[in-house]
Design a binder for these strands. Structure first.
Lengths: 215, 215
DNA sequence: GCTTATTTTGGTCGATCGTTCAAAATAAGT
DNA sequence: ACTTATTTTGAACGATCGACCAAAATAAGC
């Protein structure tokens, strides 16, 4: 049984893979998993439908790949921000939330339209129990880390309260990133809400959950 | 052109309508609009597929009907709670948020499993720009009312900041109601987070947005 | 009880879905 | 340049989708 020799993927292939992932990100973000068709994604990428399967595997695998791609980058940005901030001195709740939310907000604002699509994609993932394991694999480790850091700020805090507060903060962040389609409806500014408002809201909320439990 | 005489719908028909709406609520909540099929809904309701169209119209109309049914009840509960609380004395931010969230939390907890399904359904609506108009029609009027009440508490507050904070609070509430499938993953209690934690978080966050803008 | 409108059934329609595949085109290795 | 593996095309496959309809069953009005 001779080993079949593998060959490194061509550069053209790598470009196509990214084109397909970008297209999948946009289409999945707009219409969700079931609303998006392989043919829609292929058309958005400018390739044939069969090619999507060749590069992305099944539709579920493609979806998982799309979620995973930026999740890795995002986690690294968050953890790096945390280390840098820690080196600068003692951490506050605002520091921690800024390290967690800052990279996402920044990339969504100036990292190109793909990052904004990714935020909408994550909103779909969060709304569908079907992707529980996917979300747990890619988001929970970093979330757990930040929850632990937050809980460590207040020795008397109830860890479950802090975890709940963190979930609320993440939900608010996703709402902030995806509220573009609500613009104007509720008196929000044209370009959506300000990132500072989000941070103020979440810091105050988290600090409330950090307070020692009342008797 | 003789007017064709209408006939009142039979009671059996009304029961079937509700069975179908309940089934649609469950299936739409679990799999979203595109993931749910008319046949799935019909099977869950124990009727034939054609009957779903007869009672609910097109799939989109059925979805809209499903969203609208409890939205009406919910708005009324919220506005009633607001009037009752107002009669008891001057309102605080906590009062207002409790009037808005309380009915939902209460119905989700003890109003039967259908109300919990409805919360997941609303999460899908919030994640999909396709239902912008639907959400605006059924949720915005009441939301606007509560935003105005909140803003009135603090004359120096920026209305847009308050609106943003309210959107964050709603997102946190939906996360609270639908976080059952995250239970345990992040250290949350088995039965999900406590409603009190949600209210504490949101009150603190909203009060932060009510503070007069710094110079 | 007879008539009429409504409710329900069971099946079918064309369209579109995810997936597969053989063949053509392209690029890499020697 | 020749060989070989990979990438891409274009077209199919069966399954399932939303929607529709004629006929049967049921209930309401007289």
């Amino acid at each position: 049984m001779e080993k079949q020799r593998k060959r490194a993927p061509s550069q053209r292939s790598l470009q196509t893979r990214e084109k397909i992932l970008d297209a999948a990100e946009r289409v999945f973000a707009e219409r969700g998993f079931d609303g998006a068709s392989i043919r829609d994604i292929a058309a958005a990428a400018g390739v044939q439908a069969g090619l999507v399967h060749h590069h992305g595997g099944s539709k579920e695998a493609l979806f998982a790949r799309t979620v995973a791609r930026r999740a890795e980058t995002l986690s690294q940005l968050r953890l790096d921000a945390l280390e840098n901030r820690r080196a600068a001195g003692p951490l506050t709740a605002r520091d921690l939330l800024d390290c967690f939310m800052g990279p996402y907000i920044h990339m969504a604002g100036s990292g190109g339209p793909q990052w904004l699509a990714y935020a909408r994609l994550v909103a779909h993932v969060s709304a569908d129990p079907r992707w529980r394991d996917l979300a747990a694999d890619w988001f929970d480790p970093t979330a757990r880390r930040f929850i632990a850091e937050l809980a460590a700020l207040s020795p008397g805090a109830d860890p479950r309260r802090v975890a709940a507060g963190f979930v609320y903060a993440v939900a608010a962040m996703l709402a902030h990133l995806t509220s573009g389609w609500r613009v104007g409806a509720l008196g929000l500014a044209e370009g959506g809400a300000e990132a500072g408002d989000l941070l103020d809201f979440c810091v105050a909320g988290i600090e409330a959950t950090l307070a020692p439990a009342a008797m």
